[in-house]
Amino acid sequence: MMEKTPVRTDVIIVGAGPVGLFAVFELGLLNLKCHLIDILDRPGGQCTELFPQKPIYDIPGIPNCTGQELTDRLLEQGKPFNPVFHCSEMVTQLEKNSDDHWQVTTDYGTLLEAPVVVIAAGGGSFMPKKPPIKDIEDYEGTSVFYAVRDMDQFRGKNILIAGGGDSALDWVNNLQSVAKNIGLVHRRKVFRAAPDSVNKFISMTDEGKAKFHLGQIAALHGNNGQLEGVTLKCEDGEIFQDCDILLPFFGLTMKLGPIADFGLNLHENLIPVDTARFETSQKGIFAIGDINHYPGKLKLILSGFHEAALMSHAAFPYIKPDEKLRFQYTTSSSNLQNALGINKK
């Protein structure tokens, strides 16, 4: 079997949040090219996942913007440097190859190689929240799933979906056609989902195609990983509801994930770095933003921006060992202005 050839680049950035996005710009000014990997399906990290419409007041020079606006502006700022995004992918492996370069593998099978890796992973990887129901882990992967990758695997099944947001309602609506029976359990009659999805669900319940259970899951019942039913805690007591598939959709939470296995020194799930270079215990691996740790660290986006600039200068010699780094200002350097596309008009 032929080995897969990795895609070569200058810098691999793990995490496409605000700090990873600004690193694209700072590295770009030094004529370095980046690939970014993020577990979310779009750039922005916490800014777009947790507070896309909420205001941020502490970005220097921008008195007020939302998480989405900040992300959009950072994307625009980095665009001249043509970053390559690998979204909905998680880095599973980081190792040195025979060229003394770092090689990164994702769960999607993407293989990248670069002299420098920058970990800008914030609070870690966003992963589905797992409800703390007793023994739920015994059913994970057989009867309990936190995402739908292949609808066919649920064909002819007796499905129960839990939650009241877009994911829960979308999957009730989509899986209804393949399921034998489908039900939704939610703690109240209000849904925080697109009105279209809510209306579709309500008409399906009216037609008897889907069932709505007002309540919450209290216990699971089954054998050898095969779910047979759940106990639902409802307003007037507990009831048993049979089902063989349970899909809980309660949003995402942040976990360190595979970063813990990268062979880096860790300090309480953070990556210690020096404050001149922001390099980790491994040469050529840097950590910037909320994921790093040093004396006096403040978890602010603006700290991450500063760290991105210093990291870029420290990383440069690994990538261009024979070139001298010239420190230039965007205001005065025609080289930089050309790179930014400013003189093209």
């Binding site: 929240k129 209290a218 309660f250």
Partner: peptide
Amino acid sequence: ELDMLDMAFDV
């Protein structure tokens, strides 16, 4: 807050 409590467990 009520909307966000939908993402909590055992409300």
